[in-house]
């Protein structure tokens, strides 16, 4: 039996789109396997944290806060907590996976392959989206034990979850490209993402804020996502839905374009 059968040549002549699909599937399943294997580190923490939020802010403190936008406080915080889990997990999945591949140099396995940049990006982003949605679903299940919510608009709910996960997966990818150490991959989640999420209306309606904080809050893109998701789940929002979708779409287009440009120029991955 021929070992290499080099005379047949590689599969470059095979259907290009079929090849892209195989590469994407390989990357995606590798990512899903990775976070599933270490579910105690990737899935469980969000479930535990959210349970604590529901117990403390929902049950213990929530009754004293009173209703928010006509909803029980524990119901009001469900969308923000779900989206917070989606944002954190989509971002961390891509940033840690891609940076690890850079650090241990197995990113070279992909760089020497004929996989085009957009397929590489799509594979990592899909992995981030899968983890974001998996953890988001777990948090929703946890929420169901504490509240009795019904989904107001399933399409909007799912679309916002999906687009938010895509957006923050792209953010994680860019962070990983620039990161030179494991410290660099925790700076953005700690000092940028967490404050923006907490100030993005997870626990309050921006109508409660005095000026200029109310206006300043409008510069926070996460506010739009949380409010659009709150509309999908509960039917209430501080922000017009169309504007929220527009802003998310603009951010996705900008970060996607920038990610591809970084890959094309080999920033952080090629000398």
């Amino acid at each position: 039996m021929n070992i290499n059968a080099a005379n047949k040549g590689p599969l470059i002549d095979a259907n290009r789109w079929r090849r892209y699909q195989i590469t994407f599937t390989t990357l995606f399943s590798k990512e899903v396997t990775r976070f599933s294997r270490i579910w105690i580190q990737t899935i469980l923490p969000s479930a535990i944290t959210t349970t604590l939020y529901f117990v403390i802010f929902g049950r213990l403190i929530g009754d004293r806060i009173g209703p928010m936008e006509g909803l029980a406080y524990i119901d009001f915080i469900v969308p923000g907590l779900v989206l917070m889990a989606v944002i954190t997990n989509a971002y961390s999945n891509v940033v840690s996976s891609f940076y690890s591949s850079k650090f241990s140099r197995y990113i070279e396995e992909l760089l020497v392959s004929p996989a085009p940049n957009w397929v590489i990006l799509a594979g990592y982003v899909a992995g981030g989206v899968a983890r974001g949605l998996a953890v988001g679903s777990v948090v929703l299940i946890v929420a169901a034990f504490f509240t009795r919510f019904s989904i107001h608009n399933l399409g909007v709910t799912f679309l916002i979850l999906l687009l938010t996960a895509i957006l923050f997966s792209l953010g994680g990818f860019i962070n990983a490209i620039y990161a030179n150490s494991f410290d660099d991959i925790s700076i953005v989640p700690t000092f940028v993402l967490a404050p923006l999420t907490y100030l993005g209306g997870v626990f309050y309606s921006i109508e409660l804020l005095p000026q200029p904080w109310q206006t300043l809050s409008l510069a926070n893109p996460i506010l739009y996502m949380i409010n659009a998701f709150r509309y999908g789940l509960l039917g209430v929002s501080d922000i017009p839905l169309g504007l929220a979708f527009l802003i998310i779409a603009i951010f996705i287009a900008a970060l996607g374009y920038y990610s591809l440009s970084l890959l094309r120029r080999g920033i952080g991955i090629k000398q």
């Binding site: 599969l11 590469t23 390989t26 396995e109």
Partner: peptide
């Protein structure tokens, strides 16, 4: 897995 992933990156069916 290392070998199979590499094959996948090159578009070789599983």
């Amino acid at each position: 897995e290392v070998v199979l992933n590499q094959a996948g990156y090159f578009g070789v069916p599983r």
